[in-house]
């Protein structure tokens, strides 16, 4: 029983929160609202899965939200100026990935701890995003094909939810069923034994951070398409929510370890909470307070992997 609570306790608590809002919050259970929550969750889940990859290899990534903003203004700027969507999308994905590679090189070659290296990358990305836009947002009537990437519905399901599902399934497959995924896990779990076993731990760390950057690029494209606009701070709020989703996820399914399903459920819980609180009439800042409490509570429950990544203990 203790094992069951340890594994599924937070997921059940999340379900209880969900049921509470169904009863207490007006219009919460409305299908339109529930789909809206899922759309919001899709952004933070995709970013969170990127962070999950980085943390799986034992490294933090505090740059993904700023990388997403930078990639978004690059993509949005190109679309806005009439370039083909394929080029704009490629630019966004490449920019996010390049930021991840930079993080990987800083961590594994220059030996800057990821906590610091990715913070620096975040600052650089932020500056570049403001430089590209001169501080204003790109808004306009954009190519409908591009906008559909973030707004279309397939058989009544928002396409964003399908993108999220695809990312979740691919991430699960890679981490659970491929050698490279297993090598990433070994790198984060026990770096020295992994190295002694012939696993290329530095490459795995570069890969983990690069995937985090690449998924920031994916999020940037979807966010830009969904909003038909791009601004240099547009993904900033997702830094804490996505990290909170991952940390909350580490308290379930595989306690103490970053895991994809946990990140997904963690993202849903956080999406439900912020939506439900708004519907209950709570002020906006209440969400931030709740988010902080979730982060503290999650880490208190299952800290080891995170502490190791951040402080090497």
């Amino acid at each position: 029983m203790r094992g069951f609570i340890g594994t599924y306790g937070t997921a059940l608590a999340g379900l209880a929160v969900f049921l509470f809002f169904v009863v207490a919050a007006p219009n919460f259970a409305n299908p339109v609202n529930l789909l809206n929550i899922l759309k919001q969750v899709s952004f933070l889940a995709i970013l969170g899965i990127g962070f999950t990859f980085a943390l799986t290899t034992g490294e933090l990534d505090l740059s993904f939200a700023n990388l997403a903003s930078l990639a978004a203004v690059a993509t949005g700027g190109l679309i806005h100026n009439g370039y083909p969507p394929a080029l704009a999308i490629a630019a966004g994905l490449a920019l996010g990935s390049a930021g991840g590679v930079l993080n990987g090189v800083l961590v594994t070659r220059v030996k800057v701890p990821s906590l610091i290296a990715t913070l620096a990358t975040a600052s650089i990305a932020n500056g570049c995003a403001f430089f590209l836009t001169a501080g204003v947002a790109f808004v306009g009537r954009w190519d409908p094909g591009f906008v559909a990437l973030g707004r279309a519905h397939v058989l009544g399901v928002p396409v964003l939810v399908l993108w999220m599902a695809a990312v979740v399934l691919i991430a699960l497959f890679v981490l659970k069923n491929t050698r490279v995924g297993f090598h990433m896990i070994c790198t984060g779990e026990a770096e020295e034994p992994a190295r002694l076993a012939g696993i290329r731990v530095r490459s795995m760390k570069v890969l983990g951070l690069t995937l985090s950057g690449a998924l920031a690029g994916v999020t940037a494209v979807l966010l830009t398409a969904n909003l038909s606009s791009a601004a240099p701070t547009m993904a900033g709020d997702y830094l804490l929510t996505a990290i909170a989703a991952v940390l909350l996820g580490m308290t379930m399914f595989e306690p103490g370890r970053p895991n994809v399903l946990g990140t997904l459920v963690g993202g849903v819980v956080i999406g439900v909470l912020s939506n439900g609180l708004i519907l209950l009439g709570a002020d906006y800042y209440v969400q931030d307070i709740v988010l902080g409490l979730i982060i503290i509570g999650s880490v208190a429950l299952s800290a080891s992997t995170l502490k190791k990544a951040a402080f090497g203990v």
Binding site: R179, C186, A190, P193, A194, A197, G256, R257
Partner: peptide, 27 residues
Amino acid sequence: ALAPRLAIYQNVFMGAELTRGLGPLRV
């Protein structure tokens, strides 16, 4: 030189995993 949170078989095969074909992929 073991990874305590990984399973016995994962430790035994670490760095030298067995794979099988799944369509064009190796899993």
